[in-house]
Nucleic acid binder design. Structure first.
Length: 515
RNA sequence: GCUCCGUUCGUCUAGGGGUUAGGACACCAGAUUUUCAUUCUGGCAACACGGGUUCGAUUCCCGUACGGAGUACCA
């Protein structure tokens, strides 16, 4: 199954126009899972045919994001491979021949219309009541192209170097069928498809041509991409047919979209900003505007949690198992179990996954996160101590940084005290026992939690108090807060001298409530 | 508008002609914990609507509604 080599070849083909969207990451993930499950190849192809939208750094960002979540590439711009280059801009010279081949066969034609002329056509038709004017089998006869112009005029224009595009000549009446692996048979009438531009006037191919040519040349067997491509899939079918590649055409699988958490529509950066969660895998700063966006990595999400969460947005194994590592997913994945309907993005589920994977980490690994937080705070801490703290905090946190955020008292005396607890628990009894406890600590040199606990209980019972009842007051004095891990362990870690100093401060600061 | 795609608890989903419609997240309650968190137990909560087909439909078919995508010399 997973180890067998096969001829399955899939590709993830993003456009380097900015940070990789989380939906794009999921598409990459599904491609990867499918490839690995079948022992096939995973290819990265950069689709940078739009020079106006190119964003420096975007390609590196994409690669780093894929690497972060554990998606390994078999072929790509960096990996190389037998079908390179893997950047479309570097394949530019390839595409024109295929477009010309289509022209020769009568399936494509030159069009010389200027943007103004196109706009005029649309305006005219809109005014005449056509809601969405298209350049197609009926309108092309009124435009300036090699189907309407005399041949010698076409020759002259081509030779004169005026800008032109090559358009696909879509038949007027034809049914185009597509057997989508997720949706089944999809039927589209060719009258709904317009004469798409194949070659732009700058000499670059459009997505449609480049995509089909490259998928064919790279021997792609399965095209797994977002549902937004479904409407143009019939066009691609036509292209394969006219290019003579229908026999080896890849199979298509159009993935359901990731939707906004509430409301409706595609998940967007704006939603993420408003609701305070990331939408990009890694932090991203737009080089043009300087605008920053938060990443899942920097927000404290573990890659295995993101992967598990993303995989389950639109796919499930059909069992009740919820936790899947990347390798588990590779083993269980199948296109048949992908849903048809779009999935709302629920960040709470992502947080739950994060918690689960955080629990599974060793305290040693978690301590590393703590040490990083401490370094930025300028606090030094022995590794052993960090490990002990990480172990205590492990199952009460959702993000690694919370070890520090919720456990500052391990390193600093409280700068304030929880008022609710103070007013409820800081009473004469408590003060009496806590002072006596502090004195007792001063006489002995206790270094472990159980000895400290024994002392606490002894002092309390000597004074006729219930050690449990006034424990909260002690916790308040030592940590300033109401919650946290076992107090005795906390005191062991910070040491009894520090405990005594904190008790003394608390005794001075906190007022005893007069009954 | 038009074309295509979709619709099971609030969310992610399982299921599938006869089920007490299952799980997870979230939420609520109880237990445990000196506290918080964890953990455990329990609870709330769904087949969009209308027609068919059928002994029987949430499941199949057709409509309707609602939602999504596409409709560029962007991908």
């Amino acid at each position: 199954m997973t180890e067998r080599m096969s001829d399955v070849r899939v590709r993830f083909a993003p456009s380097p126009t900015g940070a990789l969207h989380i939906g794009g990451l999921r598409t990459a993930l599904y491609n990867y899972l499918f490839a690995r499950h079948h022992g096939g190849a995973m290819i990265l192809r950069i689709e940078d045919t739009d020079q106006t939208r190119f964003v420096p750094g975007a390609e590196d960002y994409i690669k780093e994001a894929l690497a972060w979540v554990g998606i390994r590439l078999d072929e790509g711009p960096d990996e190389g491979g037998p079908y390179g280059p893997y950047r479309q801009s570097e394949r530019k010279s390839l595409y024109l021949d295929y477009a010309l081949d289509l022209v020769r066969k009568g399936h494509a034609y030159y069009a010389f219309d200027t943007p103004e002329e196109l706009q005029a056509m649309r305006d005219r038709l809109t005014a005449a009541g056509v809601p969405q004017p298209q350049y197609n089998s009926v309108t092309r006869v009124q435009m300036r192209n090699s189907l309407t112009l005399p041949p010698d005029e076409v020759e002259r224009l081509l030779a004169s170097g005026v800008p032109y595009v090559i358009r696909l000549k879509v038949p007027r009446k034809e049914e185009i069928r597509l057997n989508d692996l997720i949706r089944g048979w999809v039927l589209v009438h060719s009258s709904q498809v317009d004469d798409k531009v194949l070659m732009k006037s700058d000499g670059m191919p459009t997505y449609h041509l480049a995509n089909v040519v490259d998928d064919h040349l790279m021997k792609i067997t399965h095209v797994i991409r977002g549902e937004e491509w479904l409407p143009s899939a019939p066009l691609h079918i036509l292209l394969y047919r006219y290019l003579g590649w229908e026999d080896t055409m890849p199979q298509f699988a159009h993935l359901p979209l990731l939707l906004k958490p509430d409301g409706n529509g595609k998940l967007s950066k704006r939603d993420a900003d408003q609701m305070g969660f990331p939408i990009f895998p890694l932090d991203w700063t737009d080089p043009a505007t300087g605008e920053k966006a938060m990443g899942f990595r920097e927000a404290g999400y573990l890659p295995e949690a993101l992967v598990n969460f993303l995989a389950f947005l639109g796919w499930n194994p059909g069992t009740e198992q919820e936790l899947f590592t990347l390798d588990d997913l590779v083993g269980s994945f199948s296109l048949e179990r992908i849903n048809k309907a779009g999935a709302r993005f629920d960040i709470q589920k992502a947080q739950w996954y994060n918690q689960q994977y955080l629990r599974r980490k060793s305290p040693e690994v978690l301590a590393q996160y703590l040490l990083e937080s401490l370094a930025t705070e300028g606090i030094e801490c022995p590794r052993e101590k960090a490990i002990a703290i990480a172990g205590l905090m492990q199952d009460r946190i959702t993000f690694p940084r919370e070890i520090w955020e919720q456990g500052k008292y391990f390193f600093r005396p409280p700068d304030s005290y929880d008022e609710k607890v103070a007013s409820k628990k800081w009473n004469e009894d408590a003060v009496k026992v806590i002072s006596a406890f502090s004195d007792a600590l001063g006489k002995e040199r206790l270094t472990d939690a159980s000895a400290i606990k024994a002392t606490w209980e002894a002092v309390a019972s000597q004074l006729g108090a219930n050690p449990g009842k006034i424990m909260q007051a002690l916790r308040l004095a030592v940590t300033g807060t109401a919650g946290g891990p076992d107090l005795m362990m906390i005191m062991e870690i910070i040491g009894t001298d520090e405990v005594r100093s904190r008790i003394s401060s608390a005794l001075k600061t906190l007022k005893v409530k007069v009954a």
